[in-house]
Computed example of a mutant assay.
Amino acid sequence: MKVLRVVGAATAVLLAACDTVVPTWQPAPATASASASPTASVLASPSPVELTLAFGGDVHFTERTAALLKNPATAVGPMTSVLSAADLAVVNLETAVTTRGTPEPKEFHFRAPATAYEAVKAAGIDAVSIANNHALDYGRAGFADTLDGAAAAGVPVFGGGRTVDEAYAPLILTVRGVRVAILGFSQIHTLAESWKAGPATPGIAMAWDVPRAAAAVRSAREHADLVVVFNHWGTERDSCPNANQKQFAAVLADAGADMIIGAHAHVLQGAGWLGRTYVAYGLGNFVWYVGSADTGVLKVQVRGRSVVRAELIPAVVSGTGQPKPLTGSAATAAAKRFTDLGRCTGLAAGPPPA
């Protein structure tokens, strides 16, 4: 069984980020497992804790995948075993979780009932990003339900909130004594101005506010052992990262991100190292309502702040919309396709020498 502790009184530790003010650290209550100096607790140890993190791409429950919620315990499908085995598993929840609201002026609209959170928990997923271009598909009424439903179900969310400070705040989880900060940003143009969080307006954290995003990462760096950023970005159906992705990744790496994970493009994108920062540009669809495509769980082993191993556990989006594990030669071929995607990323095949 995984044992994770959310740092702070709420589901996220609020680190207020703005262009001119240094974000404010709100410390957790003193506990036996908390460290006064979290970074030193891990990095100064002669034998840093080694964690296994697992990441999946976009998940929602609509059309063919809506039927999966008849049994939330099995909704995500057989890749659950990989997610559950990790010390920390994270996906992007690509939907409003609501039965209310009015569709926003956009082409595609996704929503799911509150049992979506039951499915997420049953799959061993520990936290979900809501920094995407579907979280507000049914307006702020639907978004309020999404936040309330997550809190009621005990599913930590990040990348959005009731205010701009909450949206840009990292979720900080203590995993086997390691404080892991997770932040989420959306780099999608559609309705970005109207969906962005404001001082007293619910919404999501936008990557387009680069100074605020960088400040949030720098503040998380000061108060966590490991900093992970999960972005919603990229050009749909393009397996190569675009210029905006590359530029933003460089900013995040410079601000102190140890890992940068992405989704949105509906296809896998390549991975590698940007200096000492591990970047996986795109994990594609994971539980999806149409089509079939390469997918998988990105399994990452981390020692201290260093990614020591990363591999895609290959799968394919099946006829049910669930990811189905690949085996044998099909798995080998899929893994090679993912490795080959690194060629257009500009990333290194490994970290620089210590």
Score class of each variant (00 low, 15 high):
A253L: 05
F158Q: 01
F230P: 00
P156F: 08
E94A: 06
R305L: 05
A213P: 00
T295D: 05
T20V: 01
H189L: 13
A86H: 07
E222N: 07
G256F: 02
L88N: 00
V90M: 11
A16L: 04
R309K: 13
Q301E: 13
E107I: 14
S129Y: 11
G101A: 09
A144W: 10
P325D: 08
S41C: 11
I172N: 04
N92V: 03
T52F: 09
A335E: 13
G270E: 08
V49S: 10
D87N: 10
P241V: 04
A280N: 12
V210S: 00
A255D: 01
A167V: 00
L268C: 02
Q322Y: 09
G77C: 08
R5H: 14
C18K: 00
A12K: 15
D238Y: 01
T295E: 05
A40V: 12
A131T: 07
F143A: 11
L93Y: 02
W233Q: 03
A28P: 12
R305I: 05
V290W: 12
A32T: 14
A293M: 11
A96Y: 10
T62V: 13
N285G: 04
S45W: 09
T146K: 10
A255V: 01
W288I: 05
G8L: 04
T80L: 08
M206P: 05
S33K: 13
R309A: 13
G57Q: 04
E104F: 07
S45D: 15
G234Q: 04
R179D: 15
T99P: 01
V300Y: 04
E63P: 04
L83W: 11
N92W: 02
T11P: 15
G304A: 01
G198H: 04
V229L: 07
I204M: 10
H223S: 05
A250I: 03
T24S: 14
S81C: 11
A265R: 01
L68I: 06
A253W: 02
T277G: 05
N231C: 14
Y278W: 12
A253F: 04
V287M: 07
E104S: 14
H109D: 06
V90I: 15
D254G: 12
A75R: 03
A200W: 12
H189S: 15
A334F: 08
K106V: 09
